[in-house]
Measured scan of single mutants.
Amino acid sequence: CHSECLGNCSQPDDPTKCVACRNFYLDGRCVETCPPPYYHFQDWRCVNFSFCQDLHHKCKNSRRQGCHQYVIHNNKCIPECPSGYTMNSSNLLCTPCLGPCPKVCHLLEGEKTIDSVTSAQELRGCTVINGSLIINIRGGNNLAAELEANLGLIEEISGYLKIRRSYALVSLSFFRKLRLIRGETLEIGNYSFYALDNQNLRQLWDWSKHNLTITQGKLFFHYNPKLCLSEIHKMEEVSGTKGRQERNDIALKTNGDQASCENELLKFSYIRTSFDKILLRWEPYWPPDFRDLLGFMLFYKEAPYQNVTEFDGQDACGSNSWTVVDIDPPLRSNDPKSQNHPGWLMRGLKPWTQYAIFVKTLVTFSDERRTYGAKSDIIYVQTDATNPSVPLDPISVSNSSSQIILKWKPPSDPNGNITHYLVFWERQAEDSELFELDYCLKGLKLPSRTWSPPFESEDSQKHNQSEYEDSAGECCSCPKTDSQILKELEESSFRKTFEDYLHNVVFVPRKT
């Protein structure tokens, strides 16, 4: 048989008469490798580009789960590009990614509803959504962080984005990388972005840091009482949809009607710091009717980097990364020049730590249904340095008659930039024990000054392991946590139920 035959053949030295091919099969003959313009397919066939392209389009058009959109890589027609490569849609070739590779997620039936953290986790790592997304989240724990972890990498949506009755959302900033909504599939009414009845939605994105392009379709905003109209108009300008909307697409009466839409800028007039305090004062603000001013709200939190936005980490279910302080308005003076500047002394802060701070007014709604208010920009203030805590785990070892090696770990709280350490030492008198000992005694162990690591005695271990207080009263049991108490109650309830079950099964009433 021919060298490319495997198993047997019907005619000697003829690659077209093989029972099976050793390498690849091409047009009725066995070959060692697939010549151009053919590609290896499933490690035994040679196919042309049209064959591989037909497989790709067949799966793409069917949208069946589990099928493969075949691509070409290293002269092979394979189910998908290997790690580190992405497909070129024009020629199906796998090309190296520039940075992290995109991950295209194809949605069944063309859309997916995100109504819980669990459903959001199914899209973790996706960068391109081939379909439409509907966000409908009523509640949950730590929602802002969970949504950002699972949806934060999405850069492109081919269909539309719909935010509907998501009472738990305060902001859409968890879509931190969303840059493009194509609108290839539109919501009824030709809408590519749809926001309806979101009672706590206050911000779409921080438009000073976020760009969003909507290729096709219109915007729809109705019944978002805490979303200011200025935020919607800003989205029109940034996304390129200005002029597409009709009169009733953006409701003037049901958007922002319960919001404090600040239209003035508060400026800080005085800032002073110490290692654990920050004193702030800002310019006074009074609405047209000074009785509408209820006070100020001061927001602050630790910020290692200057990239904080107002609604980071917030949701309507209680999660809030900001510390909020309510401040009463100052006494009002008739003389504008003698107006008191409101302020606040922030206490209990960490030394040498940068804080993000902003302040906003708290006002009631005027009778004319106009909203007044003022808010400052987010500023960054760093507390002063102070003395560091003591170095940890000092170790001293003498390696000769004239040297001592000293080692330690950095302090747990540096409280500033540590530039150097101060080492103090003092000579001590020799131990009298060394002169009084009889060095001729056998088995004498000389006193040693070398360091030995501390260890816990058996008594201390027994005390720590004991669940009861000892007789001397030195140790006591740790208080039980809520989960331990709940577990004990469940076990007790189970024992009672099981005992009742045994009584009912074992003891049967005697027939009379």
Results as ranks from 00 to 15, higher is better:
R176A: 07
F296Q: 00
Q339M: 09
I129S: 01
T113R: 04
V359F: 03
N190L: 10
L279M: 15
K103E: 02
K407G: 03
G159H: 04
D335F: 14
E156W: 07
L331Q: 14
S166C: 14
I395P: 00
E283M: 15
S132V: 01
H233F: 02
R202S: 09
S333N: 08
L349M: 08
T254H: 15
Y191R: 07
K301L: 09
I327T: 06
I327G: 02
S230P: 14
F220V: 13
N340S: 11
R124I: 05
N142C: 15
K409D: 04
L143S: 09
G256S: 09
L123N: 01
A145L: 12
P351C: 09
I214N: 03
R165H: 05
V238A: 14
Y355M: 05
R138L: 14
G373S: 02
L212R: 01
P388M: 02
R138W: 02
N198M: 06
S173P: 04
R176S: 13
V397P: 11
N142L: 14
R347E: 04
D328R: 13
R281K: 13
L345V: 07
V324S: 02
Q203K: 11
A145S: 08
K337S: 14
D206Q: 12
I188P: 05
S192N: 02
T383Y: 02
E246F: 08
W207K: 10
W344P: 02
I405M: 02
I357T: 10
S173T: 09
F299G: 04
L107M: 10
G343I: 15
W344K: 12
V359P: 00
F175N: 03
P330K: 12
F365H: 15
A374T: 04
Q203L: 09
L201Y: 01
D377K: 12
S269D: 14
R179N: 08
E264A: 03
S119K: 05
Q403R: 11
G343K: 14
S116H: 06
C317W: 12
T127V: 14
V390N: 13
L153M: 14
T241D: 09
L180Q: 06
S319M: 14
N190E: 03
K226R: 06
E310H: 13
S132L: 01
F221R: 01
I250L: 13
D393C: 15
F174Y: 13
Q245Y: 06
K277S: 07
I135F: 04
H210I: 09
R281F: 15
L265Q: 13
C317M: 08
G217R: 08
D257C: 03
K407H: 02
Y305K: 02
N130L: 05
E264F: 04
K360A: 02
G295H: 01
K267S: 12
M297D: 03
S173K: 13
E111V: 08
I378E: 01
T113Y: 05
D384L: 09
M235F: 09
K177F: 08
G125Q: 09
I327L: 01
P284E: 11
S239C: 13
L143G: 09
P342D: 09
I114N: 00
T383H: 01
T353H: 13
L108S: 09
Q306E: 12
Y300L: 13
I181H: 00
L204M: 14
S321G: 10
Q121A: 00
P304G: 02
D367A: 02
V308R: 08
E236S: 07
F268H: 01
L153S: 12
S171Q: 11
D206T: 07
K253T: 14
N190H: 14
R138V: 01
S239D: 05
D384C: 08
A145E: 13
L298M: 13
A356L: 02
T386L: 10
Y372Q: 03
R347N: 07
D312H: 11
T353Q: 08
A149W: 14
F221T: 08
S119A: 04
S230W: 04
T118S: 13
S398Y: 04
Y191W: 07
N334E: 15
Q314P: 02
L107P: 15
N211G: 04
Y380M: 06
L107N: 11
D115C: 08
L169T: 14
S398L: 03
W344R: 14
D276V: 01
S376F: 00
H233T: 10
L169Y: 07
E264P: 03
P394E: 03
S119I: 09
S376W: 01
P287E: 00
D315K: 15
L252E: 07
E156R: 03
P329E: 01
K375A: 03
Y223R: 06
P330L: 09
L280N: 00
I134L: 09
T353L: 07
E156K: 05
N142P: 14
P288S: 10
Q403H: 14
R332K: 11
T383F: 01
R247P: 09
K177N: 15
H222R: 08
L212Q: 07
L298K: 02
S321L: 08
N320T: 15
P394C: 09
G373M: 01
L392I: 10
L349Y: 01
Y191L: 10
E262S: 03
L345C: 05
V324F: 03
L294H: 10
N211Q: 07
V390S: 10
D393K: 15
G189A: 13
Q258T: 05
L212T: 10
I154S: 02
N399S: 11
R244F: 11
N334C: 15
L280R: 00
G343N: 14
K226Y: 05
L331V: 13
E109R: 15
N141M: 06
L107E: 10
E146D: 01
C261K: 03
S400P: 12
H341P: 11
F275N: 12
L219S: 10
A251H: 13
Q216K: 05
D292P: 03
I379C: 12
N320S: 08
I327R: 06
S400Y: 14
Y300A: 05
Q199F: 04
I357H: 01
L266N: 02
L331R: 12
W286T: 03
N150W: 11
Y191A: 11
N198K: 03
Q354T: 05
G139K: 07
N211E: 09
P336K: 10
N387L: 08
L266C: 03
K209W: 07
K103H: 02
E231N: 07
L294M: 03
P304S: 05
F221Y: 11
Y191F: 12
Q199I: 07
N387T: 13
T254F: 07
E237R: 11
K162L: 13
H222V: 13
H222S: 08
L252K: 07
L204T: 10
P225R: 03
E148K: 10
F290Q: 01
S389T: 14
A303M: 07
I214H: 04
L107T: 14
T309L: 14
I405W: 13
L293V: 02
H222A: 08
T241S: 06
D335T: 14
A385T: 11
D197M: 13
S119R: 08
E246Q: 14
Q382E: 11
P329H: 02
D197I: 01
N387S: 05
Y372A: 03
N150Y: 06
F221S: 08
R281M: 10
E237W: 10
L298C: 15
H210K: 14
S396L: 07
P330N: 07
G139S: 10
K277W: 14
D115M: 05
P288A: 11
Y355Q: 00
S230T: 04
P411W: 02
I134R: 03
G343M: 07
A144F: 15
D276A: 13
Q339K: 13
K177G: 04
D292E: 01
N150D: 05
S192D: 03
K226V: 06
I327C: 05
N334Q: 12
M235K: 01
D315S: 15
K209V: 11
L201G: 01
P410F: 08
E122D: 08
T361I: 01
T383C: 06
D393A: 15
G110L: 10
F311Y: 08
